[in-house]
Design a protein around this nucleic acid. Structure first.
Lengths: 331, 331
DNA sequence: CTGTTAGCGCTTTCAT
DNA sequence: ATGAAAGCGCTAACAG
């Protein structure tokens, strides 16, 4: 195979330049003991002067580890993921690691291919937003000493960095009810994807139901709700919103739409603005700036990204971060 | 150094299992000729059965190349960058490459550190959104056989994938003028950063000026314009918009705000909605869904990401992609 | 204190 | 058609 003369200066070159052995160079470079301070200085100076940069590939092959953190996410279409990713990259970089990013595109098989690929690159650890229902591969990685952390969806037996989705949606829904809305439309088409890991969506839905339930036991308990749990129903709902009054969903002044992800908020907002209530989820920077009046649960994405890296590198346990309910004129 | 038993099955293992030599395994795996079809099948079956995955690190060290494409961007706060990144990852992945992403955070020094780091990982090529004014390091990489492509801002002597920023803003401004607006506020605070590469912003500003200029030669040539070219002025402008009438900027019904990046659109839109005209730039998915009525130049980000990877891997030349003016009620 | 050497997993001659 | 061996750049163990 043709070698490209890309090769920068190596330890061997440094050894030749300084008239010492590569072992000595190594001791200087890595600050190991047992070396004459003068020799050390001479070598380090030469390294500096020649712009020596350790070849990470060789280091990785030799040590069996790398300074690479793998990140598998579904895509970047959602600000939720980009902010987490930003935090991950910042934290990883601050700790001397680089981030290798791949996208599963919501395809469980593709996700596992990504994981295998990353593993073949000796990644130091993996952060994954899982869509696969089978965490077996990840458990195997953990067993072999490669830490794995999940974000977004949980997976049994694997550390998780995130929020308590159940509690967040329960509180959020409670807030909507407390503002007098009595007809709730819960727009969660993703619930249709039963062959994927949608644990976060399930927990949020359960939180929603629990809020409605517990409210139902009160005095003014005539709450009516509707769970939009398929893309078909969701499309129909949007069409009804657009065309004016909806039948299936019984829109009226006391109606509020609850979106368990701002991916849906983006669809719904232009249609309900000023007509019905709307509560989002995530509450991310861009949406917050564009639509300051939007109410919703605030997802602490930056903290989560940082926490995920922390769990990975310090081998600590799962962590649940606090969320907030952001009030707004849309509720 | 402690070796972790992460190691999956290797060519050596395969050789032992099949009772052949490493060389033979290699011939089978890589489909090179000069091997008995039966032996080959036996080896491939064993590889399949044992879930053999080539160790990319070793491959990279041995060949001096890797299947890694480096991407250095400023950050992910902008949908502009996330959509390009998505396209890059898709295309790279489809062509068998992985993406290593780092963020310069608009810091030229940090950008160069990222580049050096990536180089030490034997990246096959680099896509960079440059903020540094000195492309020397990149030229050196190219000289040594590592292709580099710029996006966003151009850099002399380095291939570029993008649009004609000058023409885009000239046309966009022409559109605003054609709709009757005669007072234009051009909000481009980034112009202040003269110690960074802001070529795209400069080109857009020049396009804006050219449009105003060429229009001025006509009959109804009383166009008044104002370039907000610092963060100070920008903040003042936003404050004036918020507080009602502005003095510096002379807002009135015939006023239109032109934002050469939707990063600014996001700030301005809530303040001018229904009062003054507003033209954005980029016209990205989320903003498009949230604010369907926004007028602006549509930046073909997906195509650009794909093109950048193409230039990198096929060693082709710069490419300028077509843009579009999207009309909308905000103008 | 310093030099030598083996080895990480793979590719690639050069022999056989 | 197959095997043996060198080498990519670095680390670590062992000699001296």
């Amino acid at each position: 195979m043709k070698k490209l003369s890309n090769s920068r200066i190596t330890v061997k070159d440094l050894a030749r330049i300084c008239g010492v052995s590569i072992g000595t160079v190594d001791r200087a470079i890595n600050g190991r003991g047992g070396i004459n301070p003068d020799t050390k200085k001479r070598i380090l100076d030469a390294a500096e002067a020649n712009g020596f940069v350790k070849n990470q590939t060789a280091l990785s092959l030799s040590s069996g580890r790398s300074a690479l953190i793998g990140v598998i996410i579904t895509d970047l279409s959602n600000e939720f993921l980009t902010t987490i990713l930003t935090a991950i990259e910042s934290e990883a970089s601050a700790r001397g690691f680089s981030t290798l990013i791949m996208m599963s595109k919501y395809d469980p098989e593709r996700e596992l291919e990504c994981a295998a690929r990353m593993r073949s690159m000796n990644i130091a650890g993996l952060i994954v937003f899982p869509v696969t229902l089978d965490p077996g591969y990840y458990l195997d990685m953990i067993r072999r000493g490669i830490p794995v952390v999940t974000i977004g969806n949980r997976a049994d037996g694997i550390p998780f960095a995130g929020i308590d989705d159940f509690a967040a949606m329960k509180e959020g829904t409670g807030y909507v009810l407390s503002r007098g809305y009595r007809r709730l439309i819960y727009a969660a088409p993703l619930l249709q994807k039963t062959s994927q890991n949608i644990r976060a969506q399930l927990l949020r839905r359960d939180g929603f139901l629990a809020a409605v339930e517990s409210f139902g036991s009160g005095a003014e308990a005539d709450v009516e709700y509707h769970v939009v749990d398929s893309y078909d129903k969701y499309r129909r709902m949007l069409a009804e919103l657009e065309s004016g009054a909806g039948r299936d969903c019984s829109f009226d002044a006391g109606t509020a739409l609850i979106c368990p992800s701002d991916a849906y908020t983006a669809d719904c907002l232009p249609l309900v603005r000023g007509r019905y209530g709307l509560m989002g989820f995530d509450r991310l920077p861009l949406i917050g700036r564009l639509i300051p009046e939007l109410a919703g649960v605030a997802y602490p994405t930056a903290e989560i990204g940082k926490a995920a890296v922390g769990i990975l590198l310090d081998r600590t346990d799962s962590i649940l971060l606090p969320f907030k309910i952001v009030p707004g004129e849309t509720i």
